[in-house]
């Protein structure tokens, strides 16, 4: 079954390179383009990092493009453990645990439910499967700000408003459309014979899912996880409104930190806090970016 091989060959066979002047100029242009592009992408991060390593005085007098005179990590330490957020001066570390408490169930549930949806919609002959998917996808295009108010009323009706379950439920809801689409695309590429054979052997819906389909889904699960983690981790407004004040995540702490300020603005601390907050999804991309690239196209190319 060649279709099952979702991994993508890393390079297309190339024609042999010849040392012609035109080709050399072409390659020079190519590298020039790539280097310029890399600069465009890297500069904002370089500025954020270099600002976080400067002293307040350096920031005030110098340009943002200047590199720091000395590596000074005190802003990082301060952002982590002693910067003032409103009345408390304990840095942004307090929100880390809440962020994790919100993220883990949100992503786990989103991925599990979406995988199940994608599996049911693609591998089982469900009437109106296309219609169901389209109806779901409409949800992906509604700005969530529009739905906050009714959702608050609903979550308070079922008695979970202002708690972690409420914010988890909202995250699951908003994650469902795109994640379901990704899983459906991926599973549509699987051969139907696989299911048929298993059903002949007497395996049921869930058994096939957990025994056969899920173990083959590593790539796509990584994609779904990355998308889900990034979305949930970076959210600010939903958590502020639904999570209740004891469960506020790091992003809310970050927003408070940036607006809490005594006298001269400490851009270095703000920048350090911003980077710290963004670190988990960043690391995730750095370490699993390759799988991400593989997984996200796996279904699309064939579907």
């Amino acid at each position: 079954m060649t279709m099952l091989q979702t991994a993508i060959p890393s390079a297309v066979p190339r024609r042999a390179r010849k040392h012609r002047p035109a080709a050399a100029i072409g390659r020079l242009g190519l590298y020039g383009f790539l280097v310029l592009a890399a600069l465009f992408f890297a500069i904002p991060l370089i500025i954020m990092v270099s600002t976080s390593l400067k002293t307040v005085e350096e920031i005030r007098t110098g340009s943002i493009f200047m590199l720091p005179q000395a590596l000074d990590f005190s802003a990082w330490a301060k952002a982590w453990s002693s910067a003032c957020i409103g009345r408390q001066c304990e840095g942004i570390r307090g929100g880390l645990w809440n962020s994790i408490l919100i993220m883990v169930p949100s992503t786990a549930l989103s991925v599990l439910i979406s995988a199940l949806n994608g599996y049911a919609l693609s591998l089982w002959r469900i009437r109106h499967a296309g219609l169901l998917l389209s109806a779901l996808m409409v949800g992906a295009f509604i700005p969530y700000q529009v739905m906050i108010y009714p959702l608050v009323r609903m979550s308070s009706t079922i008695g979970i408003y202002g708690s972690i379950p409420a914010v988890v439920l909202v995250h699951v809801l908003f994650g469902l459309p795109i994640l379901t689409l990704i899983f459906r695309n991926f599973y549509s590429a699987l051969p139907e014979e696989l299911i048929k054979a298993a059903r002949v052997d007497g395996a049921g819906f869930f058994r096939i899912f957990f025994r056969i389909v899920l173990p083959m889904s590593t790539n796509v699960i990584i994609v779904a996880l990355i998308l889900s983690v990034t979305g949930v981790w970076n959210d600010y407004l939903l958590s502020l409104i639904f999570a209740g004040r004891e469960n506020l995540p790091m992003t809310v702490e970050l927003a408070s930190l940036v607006s809490t300020r005594i006298g001269v603005p400490e851009y270095n601390v703000n920048m350090a806090a911003t980077i710290i907050t963004a670190l988990p999804p960043l690391l995730l991309y750095l370490f699993s970016g390759r799988y991400f690239v593989r997984g996200i196209t796996a279904g699309a190319v064939k579907g």
Partner: peptide
């Protein structure tokens, strides 16, 4: 298979379309 879709359909029907 249909049964498995019920929670999502409910969630979206109420969450998205209700709203």
């Amino acid at each position: 298979a249909r049964f498995a879709l019920v929670p999502s359909i409910l969630l979206c029907a109420i969450g998205f379309y209700g709203a």
